[in-house]
């Protein structure tokens, strides 16, 4: 596959992503009109009657006198420049809040993702190689525990164990510089990563066993290749393929769906922001968060697809027998 066709494929995917975002933005914009109450009431963030001069100001500020499509167009133009208006709760720009929260969430999500991938793949690999040994059984048994442990329970347990009984990690806060952040976010990341790691261990183990039993691994060893070479060159890469396909979902889940862990460790992340904004009927904030989440989901999936194209020539070259 030439550079040109790869670029073309990438271009196609980007166009598709933009179209998807446009559809989502329409739904997000409609939130103002779909929520109970008039648009003015929602944008004022309150119930009951609004003084006439404030009503006038709101209508002008949000262009409520314009036709619906024009309103949408203005909203989209602002959204593209990352302007989602002001939060009703704080009267500060939505974008500022999003930026601050995103930093924490991406760090936490990335951290948990690295933990999951490294631990999940390594443990799965060992379990597969030492199939039916004590090590394998122990790993498989602990994945069952890990899978059935809810993140908030793990979070509380970790808090109690490593912040109170043996206080090696802080119980709350999100740190300042990189190392400090790393220190602060270790327990939350662990709590977040536990069940996904367990899932990935099982997944990797199955994928590895599948590859280990395959003819091409036997054939490679029959040509005198060492087990280590075969492992890295054959088993690793082939087992990576099914793993990449689930990694995007895992990452998204970490960044966006960490509400309970964020609450447990008093972190200011995206997940808790969304919950707060919905509870407070802070429509501009909800719109901002939802658009941000949509971008993250689409981007993560795109990266995962590109990665699997890089690893698997059958995807890249449209695998079919010549």
């Amino acid at each position: 596959m030439s550079v040109r066709s790869t670029a073309f494929l990438l271009f196609k995917r980007l166009v598709a992503a933009c179209l998807l975002l446009a559809v989502i933005s329409l739904a997000v914009f409609s939130l103002v009109y779909l929520s109970p109450g008039s648009a003015e009431q929602i944008l004022a963030g309150g119930k009951g009657s609004i003084p006439p001069e404030q009503l006038q100001r709101l209508r002008a500020e949000h262009h409520l006198d314009e036709p619906l499509l024009t309103q949408y167009w203005i909203w989209v133009k602002d959204a593209v420049t990352l302007d989602f208006g002001q939060s009703i709760q704080t009267a500060l720009p939505v974008t500022d809040e999003l930026g601050a929260r995103l930093r924490v969430s991406l760090f936490l999500g990335g951290y948990a993702f690295v933990l999951t991938t490294v631990a999940g793949v390594l443990l799965g690999l060992f379990a597969a190689l030492r199939r039916n040994s004590i090590l394998d059984r122990a790993i498989v048994a602990s994945t069952l525990v890990g899978l059935s442990a809810p993140a908030f329970a793990t979070a509380l347990l970790l808090l109690y164990a490593f912040a109170i009984l043996v206080p090696v990690f802080p119980a709350f806060g999100q740190g300042t510089d990189f190392l400090d952040t790393l220190w602060h976010l270790t327990l939350p990341a662990l709590a977040l990563a536990t069940s996904s790691t367990a899932f990935l261990v099982k997944h990797t183990r199955t994928a590895m066993l599948g590859v280990l039993d395959q003819d091409h691994v036997v054939f490679a060893r029959a040509r005198g290749l060492s087990i280590t070479t075969v492992l890295f060159r054959y088993v690793g890469r082939n087992a990576l393929i099914p793993i990449t396909t689930i990694s995007a979902l895992t990452f998204i889940q970490f960044v966006v769906g960490a509400v309970l862990v964020e609450v447990a460790f008093s972190l200011q992340g995206i997940g808790s922001l969304l919950v707060q904004a919905v509870a407070a009927k802070d429509v501009p904030m909800v719109q901002g968060v939802v658009m941000l989440v949509a971008v993250i989901v689409i981007a993560a999936n795109l990266v995962a697809d590109l990665f699997s194209m890089a690893v698997d020539p059958r995807v890249r070259l449209g695998g079919r027998a010549a």
Binding site: D215, H216, V218, F219, R223, R233, V311, R314
Partner: peptide, 14 residues
């Protein structure tokens, strides 16, 4: 040396 039966599975697909 060792050659197996199925040429479709014997070679590493990637």
């Amino acid at each position: 040396g060792f050659v197996m039966q199925d040429p479709f599975t014997m070679l590493n697909p990637v």
